[in-house]
């Protein structure tokens, strides 16, 4: 009985891992910036949110995604609500994509992801420069989008492995 209980709590913890990782990544800005590679950066929360909301993962609550966005804004120093909006736009996009997709295809997902993050980064850039008069380097956004797109396929294979473990 005790064994079953402990197994249940481990499973519960295991199923919450994506959210823990999301919160850690927004607080930590996990992006290898210290490597000092020129322009190199990628947006890990975008990949995580896109994948798990596309899969309609049961513990990925939208309100928690919203809070994660607020935390990210505070840590990075952006006006509050910008990242939340970006993250929720990803959720809308994945929800729409899920509704119109009959046969899921990883390559289609990947290019749809590129389209979505390009759109969201454009919206972000526009809001920050037009409404908040921030000076930003557009090249940084383009490179960030590109690397996020590239890293998507790597992280997706890890996440799939995780989901497989959860189903087993």
């Amino acid at each position: 009985m005790t064994k079953l209980k402990s197994r249940g709590s481990i499973l519960k913890f295991y199923s919450w891992i994506p959210l823990f990782v999301l919160f850690i990544s927004v607080m930590n800005e996990f992006d290898f910036n210290y490597l000092n590679l020129k322009y190199f950066s990628f947006n890990f929360p975008f990949i995580l949110i896109f994948f798990f909301t596309l899969k309609d993962f049961k513990n990925f609550d939208y309100i928690l995604v919203f809070i994660a966005g607020l935390i990210n804004d505070t840590v990075v120093g952006l006006p509050l609500g910008i990242s939340s909006l970006s993250y929720l736009l990803i959720c809308i996009a994945t929800s729409y994509f899920r509704n119109i997709t009959i046969r899921p295809n990883p390559i289609k997902d990947w290019f749809y992801f590129l389209f979505i993050i390009s759109l969201i980064n454009s919206i972000n850039y526009s809001i920050l420069t037009l409404f908040f008069s921030f000076s930003l380097v557009l090249m940084n956004y383009i490179v960030n989008t590109f690397f996020t797109f590239l890293f998507y396929i790597i992280f997706v294979s890890i996440f799939k492995y995780y989901l497989k473990g959860l189903n087993d």
Binding site: D31, N33, Y34, F40, V75, V137
Partner: peptide, 8 residues
């Protein structure tokens, strides 16, 4: 906190 963000 010092995240050396590429944006800000």
């Amino acid at each position: 906190v010092d995240h050396d963000s590429p944006f800000l």
